[in-house]
Design a protein around this nucleic acid. Sequence first.
RNA 1: GGAUGUUUAGCUCAGUUGGUUAGAGCAUCUCGUUUACACCGAGAGGGUCGGGGGUUCGAGUCCCUCAACAUCCACCA
Length: 852
Amino acid sequence: MGALKRSNAFLFFIFILMKPRELAKAYEPKEYEDKIYAAWEQSGFFNPDKLKAKAKPFVISMPPPNATGVLHLGHASALAYEDLMIRYHRLKGEQALWLPGTDHAAIATQTKVEKILAKEGTSRQKLGREKFLERVKEYVATSQGTIRNQTRKMGSSCDWSRERYTFDDGLSRAVAEAFVRMYNDGLIEKDYRIVNWCPRCASTLADDEVEYQENDAQLYYIKYGPFVVATTRPETKLADTGVAVHPSDKRYKKYLGKILDIDLAGHKIKVKVFADQAVDPEFGSGAIGVTPAHSAVDFDFAQKNKLEIIKLIDENGKILKSGGKYQGLDVNQARQAFVKDLQAAGQIEKIEAYKNNLSLCYRCNTPIEPLTSEQWFVRVNKKIPKRNKTLKQLATEAVKSGEIKILPDRFNKIYYHWMNNLHDWCISRQIWWGHRIPVWYKQDEIYVGSEKPKGAGWVQDPDTLDTWFSSALWTFSTLGWPDKTKDLKNYHPTSVMETGYDIIFFWVARMILMTEYIFGEKPFETVYLHGMIRDKDGRKMSKSLDNGIDPIAMSEKFGTDALRLSLIIGSAPGADLRVYEEKIAGYRNFVNKLWNISRFIFTSVGNVKTVKTEPQPKTLADKWILSEFNNLVKEISLDLDKFKFSPAGEKLYDFTWNKLADWYLEIAKIEGSKDQILLYILERLLILWHPFTPFVTELLWEQFGQKEMLMIKSWPQANKIDKKSTDYFSQLQNIVIKIRNLKVENKIPPKELPACQLESKIFTKNDLQVIAKLSRITLVANLAKAKSFSLGSTKGRINLAKELSVKERQNLENYIKATEARLKNKNFVDNAPAQVIAETKTRLAEAKNKLK
RNA sequence: GGAUGUUUAGCUCAGUUGGUUAGAGCAUCUCGUUUACACCGAGAGGGUCGGGGGUUCGAGUCCCUCAACAUCCACCA
């Protein structure tokens, strides 16, 4: 056992330095993780410019977590996959850049701070715009700190020197620049349209920011001139300007094109009767009262049929002057009062129970009020000047052409479908926390530009931009755009966008749309969509169910490496993943196993050092383990290149525990003198594991006393695989297992070493000794009265009383019967490939042999 | 209403273009401290692959159909 030499000249290893003998019996992640992370961070290698990389850059923009809360398991899983990719590509010698950042998350953040203010008994209105924004900034600063620390805790090797925030000056400039360009191209326009309005947020919402919830409602049938009109919202009838019927509905043909005066409990309205295919003549009375100002469908009717648009409900949910005597009431009060009046007037035919979908704000769950308003829109169906294509077409083609690959590919279809049905995107919001719209007004003039115009009297548009507008620029705004920076040239387009499938529309689609517009180029090559994290029963983790698992607590309890494994192994792109403590504990056990394998190797070799080239194998076991290792390197490299993280992890796990530990280390104890091979494999195994379990591998690597950290070593190359040795070795394993079985079945205690005679054409004397030690028998030259067995080309006799178990015999007999029948089947013999027939015959012979 | 996914051992999941007697981890049972590890080792039991039908010499795998669960989109006068 040689003492370790290490160089003090290198600052990388500022954490606890230990000599091999001092490795604790069990790995205690808590003692090391923070120190290891600090050492990585100080080394500077999270920054790709510090790497001596020769290969192409590999870039991931970290999806910015909302600056509102704490890291949950969803973030932890995303960080695990992203860090896995980044570390793998860094080890492959690429310029790996993982750019972290946070998002100002306009509505989400504002809502959160408003809740805090409400608890303090104040409100944003009471504070005023300036003071309120100060409060939000304070809040964001605190939660950003939390997010940063928790991201570090997960071992994320991201380049903190490039950290960005959507509210940075640079990014804000990018937002303004993008707006101005789109405005100048006529792709952003102000328009008076129907929008989704959240009365609590006092702001518009985009179509995909509205959620639906089934709701028990009442359907009122109202006597309405010559019609009976059914509605769940009687109060809106106060602003009806049309009645729609089906074109072939004979009942109403005579009214088509006419303008009728209708009296609703004394409230007078004028409605134009028109026909539309969309009307279902079977529903209710087959006539729809049309309220253009407060229903998206009705607004379309109004556009098509030139109906008057009367706004009835204001931005606070109160009835306007157009509502006559109901003016000033809020919507619910107005409904009650109006229904009462209608009933008194005998105009309510009936009221039925009815299930409908209530539209809710995705941030605060307040019911949405559709209303007309003047807002800024991105025109997705308008041709871009000089390109003769719409934004929608650009974004669709980027995926259709194969330029961008989405994993799993079934999301292509979902993406196309969404893109196809995309309407103009309302981007102005009336909330305060966000990027101000870069538009200034002076009487009749309008100025659009990234800077305030010169001269006095200009007033900036009070509205802010949809948070997704700035997020859509994320892959390039973080690299310095609109400036022509070196980073932009080197690192854009990025390589992989790793994110949850729940925000494919909100974010992924909009990044593609905006990047294709601005650069005529994709934002990323591959989209890897991970699934949602669920509890053991498959339920979403939520505060109300109290079934959430805190990643930080799990990291403290089991170690970050174990947590990461539990998130990586067993997961597939697009598939939800169940996570629970027992699973994490299982991987904690594995990490400890890896620790002890290393501990065994470090303490049993004469001198701990790295081994440059593959050592010459001496025994069958040596040839086998090297072949298995080379095969492992080959396979997991292929898996990782194809984003198959879970299979790669499983193969590593299987090799480490079931091959290296269970067989080779045991044989090493028997055969001895395996320092070179053990060190050769361990060194490289730590590299292979590093992207999965960065902490423990870096710590163990320290034992080699090298100047460089494991993080920047080179990914191993696969050498030759010796097929004959793997075949022979599996025969050796089968014999050992066979003998162990025979011993257990015959109730021979493990300590007893029954006499056994072994004859083989392929095994050396040494191999037979290995078999004897592993299976715990005494090898003898001759054994007269004994149970005989045979496996492959090896025959054995062992001193046991009992025969094959009844079940074993039964299985063999069944198998032989079935196989013989198959071989007699003319169809099989004529049609199956010769190789399959030959294999079947061989297996049959083996089975018969066993029965003897 | 449209679309997608899932259904394999008690639990969580693998099973690549159809081809060994369907695998792993956890859990269970038996035995066990031998040069690292009880967060361990050796061994065992446990599955008519959601139901039905079809194609094929051969189906967990391909096709049809039904069912349950989940998710997304659209719409709801």
